[in-house]
Nucleic acid binder design. Sequence first.
DNA 1: TATGAATGAGCCTTCATTCAT
DNA 2: CATGAATGAAGGCTCATTCAT
Lengths: 214, 214, 214, 214
Amino acid sequence: MTKPAKTFENLPDEKRERVLAEATREFADHGFHQASVNRIVNRLGIAKGSLFKYFGNKEGLFEYLFGHAVAEFKKPLKAIRDNGTGDFFDRIEQTFLASGAFVDAHPNIYRIYLKMLFNERFPLRERFLGEIRKAHAKFLRQLIEDGKKRGDLPAGLDAADAVFILHSTMDRFLQGYAVPSLDHGVEPTENTLHDKARAMTDLFRHGLGGSREG
Amino acid sequence: MTKPAKTFENLPDEKRERVLAEATREFADHGFHQASVNRIVNRLGIAKGSLFKYFGNKEGLFEYLFGHAVAEFKKPLKAIRDNGTGDFFDRIEQTFLASGAFVDAHPNIYRIYLKMLFNERFPLRERFLGEIRKAHAKFLRQLIEDGKKRGDLPAGLDAADAVFILHSTMDRFLQGYAVPSLDHGVEPTENTLHDKARAMTDLFRHGLGGSREG
Amino acid sequence: MTKPAKTFENLPDEKRERVLAEATREFADHGFHQASVNRIVNRLGIAKGSLFKYFGNKEGLFEYLFGHAVAEFKKPLKAIRDNGTGDFFDRIEQTFLASGAFVDAHPNIYRIYLKMLFNERFPLRERFLGEIRKAHAKFLRQLIEDGKKRGDLPAGLDAADAVFILHSTMDRFLQGYAVPSLDHGVEPTENTLHDKARAMTDLFRHGLGGSREG
Amino acid sequence: MTKPAKTFENLPDEKRERVLAEATREFADHGFHQASVNRIVNRLGIAKGSLFKYFGNKEGLFEYLFGHAVAEFKKPLKAIRDNGTGDFFDRIEQTFLASGAFVDAHPNIYRIYLKMLFNERFPLRERFLGEIRKAHAKFLRQLIEDGKKRGDLPAGLDAADAVFILHSTMDRFLQGYAVPSLDHGVEPTENTLHDKARAMTDLFRHGLGGSREG
DNA sequence: TATGAATGAGCCTTCATTCAT
DNA sequence: CATGAATGAAGGCTCATTCAT
């Protein structure tokens, strides 16, 4: 898939990373079409031709950097699945926290993801979103199956609905976490990642009605 | 705010609506900056100058069409607040349904909203998002207060957290509804608006654990 | 030459003058091509079509208003020729003062003239400049002839050179009077119209060398 | 100030000069706003983007070419001040001739200057006119001071008035020289630069009355 | 291999003029 | 007769991409 010219692979580590970081920032700031190759190379102080030699075109550059990021995207999930502790709901809470940590570590990648989500013209969108979605669904389905076996969840729970609910909630939870301007017009009493993850988990555990003292 | 030339107001209804529909489609397809006034006027078969006479510039066109839509955006909420029936959770379900109906009726407006959500450079973003957010928060806070009085919700429930949870969930529910490509890799047994709204409401009522037979 | 539609001639005096004043201002501010018919009609609050009905096109409007002004342009000269007093140099001084008075009375007309002077593309430029030039030359030649006869000027004085010198000096004198930003980097001890006219006249009388104490 | 891209500096001399010549011609023909970048690049046979790479925008192009010319503008003055011969009036005559030589060498630059003089909207007008005016005033004031010391001019002569008179006369002299259509309706017996410079100098020396047989 | 100058299609916007009402 | 909506050529400018050096 994502194969840049060997010339890029042969670059000194530091420069290679600077190129990717600067490009990632540009795509995160402006989306794909509005991102400017000019700005990227100007900030980097390299020739425009070089970037095109490395990646063929703008799309190739994007494919390379986002493809790499998607792999990173999946790692937190694998870690929970393999090393999670506690019951189903504890693991969900851990997933929330791990996702938040990823967003903290790679804010620009997450910003690109969010732009891609609703920009149907974003190149490679179907492929990348499909990949991410599939990984999430697979992870969540397995968590649900385990939860049913362990008795944390009713055996009759519809897995598809549950996946939808869990994925949606997590996604939106991260959206609000990554883009604080989406806050809801109420100054929350607690605004930390942990508190919100806990609130969401409580919701899954008990519903709003059973929420113990908020 | 959002005042087009009388020229536009005086247009025959049919043409006026065609202009708005075509422009809305363009913004929904491409976002603001990538939207092309050229494409709009070519599709409409009118002169480029006409559109600029109507709205002054591209931003004026957008301000007009989206500003009007935001007003529509708020109507379903008002209707629920004034005419809702049943307990708190019933009203939440009605809200889901009303929002879905809005998205059905104005899919392109909702697509613009979604693009605006994560595109920090979208003109008038702060103003419009703030307006929408405020309307939602006000509505939900009142619903929660009423729910507490009526005993549907525990008195100790933290309103801010609840608003966050409700708003987030609804928003993401609509995102998936409006952009089916965000489906979750599982073919849901039921995919209708009503079924999903019901599933979400059940979540709020009982949590995942208590979900009656899925 | 300058024949607007009767519809314009039939307008109420006040409106007719407002139209001309506003148009004159626009041409004075922006020259011909950069003047905007849109701005004119907007300021006037009349329909664009009306202006075109009155004058055919932008050039017709200009022809009408400037043609009328040129007639005014010539009046001060005639008055000096017919009613001037004193010797040749006194009459030159009177001419300076009369010209300054015209510029005071019709500043925008003079600003148009100045723009036209060096803008080879100004419509009707050849005709209007020729008309003005001819009037000036005729007037100055007659003044010189009279001066020679009266003995104020040497009989051998070359009339052509003298006309050139007088016209040039007056023109530039007015330029500096009309466009103060052309001042010369020295704060003049006296800056009034009368003082400068007197200084210029002294120059013609005695040269710089004989200038009595400046 | 006036810094084009290295791209432009690195061009082959011949092309660089053709670009400047063609652009200067366009500004001289049409002034700033009415000048067309399209026409310039079409005549040059280069891509529109290239010109914008060189100079950023239309104003940058103008700033570069006129700024450079202004430097040239000042050189004749310096040469007179340092190497002038004869009395005050001889030096004035030399100045006239040097200015005329500049206009001969750079007619389009002088045409731009004249357009700028009365076009209040000309970009960079204040800066450039100020620069030119200052250089002239400084030069003339020094000439006058020297003339007074040497006894060519009366000690009581008002320097400010004299600068005004000299500058105005020279400026208008050049205007007529550069734009022959401003001729004065009389076919002058002699029309060469030298003759007119001599006539102007005689005026300063003796006034019109003492002018020796024209 | 790295460079960066050249390209030209496409962008948004303005404006004199026309003409149906 | 006045109106003002419609027109569309032309304007300045941007930008991904190519290619000779």
